[in-house]
Amino acid sequence: MAELQLDKIDLAILKLLQSQGKLSNQELAEKVGLSASPCSRRVKTMEESGYIAGYATLLSPEHFNLSLTAYVQVRLEKHSQAILESFEDTIAGYDEVQECCLLTGSDSDYQLKVLVADMKEFKVFLLEKLTTHPHISGIKSSFVLKHVKNQTSIPLPS
């Protein structure tokens, strides 16, 4: 399949969908200057070609009593493929982990973004879940005092 070339209308559609995901196709079409059918076809094409990865509703953590965000850096004892996969599979099963990234240029191998209600819940996550993995050799946690910027949209060309 040939690579899809996005034009200005496609980019406008993507920008609007990122910021106003509940727009109907009709509203979206009006905002970008198309009729509904061509707009719908463009969105479908961008979905099929992978430019649109999916749709989600963003919930407010505070409304669910999830007010503590921690960044946890994890160092593993070894870096074999089997150990990395084992750690990643384990982390994938923890709902508290919002994000897990394999790092380079750091003393740590992974950075986790963990969302919990409070320090008591974090202690349970840390001691009863995370530290039970047999290949962890070090953990360092930092806690968010204030969210200055929290964005889900990606920058798009103009």
Rank of each mutant, 00 (worst) to 15 (best):
D118H: 09
L130P: 00
E27C: 06
V43D: 02
S67L: 10
K78Y: 11
S158T: 06
S153G: 08
T131N: 05
V32H: 04
I136Y: 05
C39P: 01
F87E: 01
Y94L: 07
A53D: 10
E30N: 14
R42H: 08
E27Q: 15
I91C: 03
S142W: 10
L156N: 07
S40T: 11
Q81S: 13
K113Y: 02
S153H: 14
S40F: 03
D95F: 04
K44D: 08
A29G: 05
F143A: 07
N150C: 02
P155R: 04
L112V: 04
A70N: 07
A117F: 02
G33C: 04
A117Y: 02
G138V: 01
T45Y: 00
K22W: 07
K146L: 09
A56I: 13
L103V: 10
N25W: 06
E85T: 12
R42Q: 08
G21P: 02
E62Q: 14
D107V: 10
S86E: 05
S106C: 10
Y71L: 10
T90S: 10
P157I: 08
L127K: 12
H79T: 11
T132D: 02
T69R: 09
V72H: 00
G33V: 03
S19V: 09
L76D: 08
E128P: 03
S158L: 12
R75Y: 05
I139S: 02
P155S: 06
A36M: 11
T90A: 13
K44T: 07
L23W: 05
L84I: 15
S49Y: 04
K78F: 09
H63L: 15
Q81Y: 07
C101F: 15
R41N: 11
E62D: 12
K149L: 11
A53L: 15
Y71W: 09
G93W: 02
G50D: 09
N25E: 11
I136C: 05
T69W: 03
M119Q: 15
S158G: 10
Q73R: 03
G54P: 03
G138Y: 02
E85C: 04
V124R: 15
D107S: 11
E99H: 12
V32C: 07
K113V: 11
S137D: 14
T104R: 14
V124M: 10
S106Q: 13
L126E: 04
K149W: 04
C100V: 14
G50Q: 09
F143P: 05
L112D: 01
F87I: 05
D89P: 00
S106E: 12
I154D: 02
L34E: 06
E27M: 10
Q98F: 03
V32Q: 06
E48P: 01
Y51A: 01
L68V: 13
S141N: 10
L112G: 00
N25H: 13
P157H: 06
G93Y: 02
T132H: 08
T69Y: 05
E30I: 08
L28Q: 03
Q20L: 09
F143V: 12
I52M: 05
E96Y: 03
V74W: 00
N65Q: 07
S142L: 13
H79D: 12
G105H: 13
A29T: 04
S35P: 02
S86L: 01
L112H: 01
G21T: 06
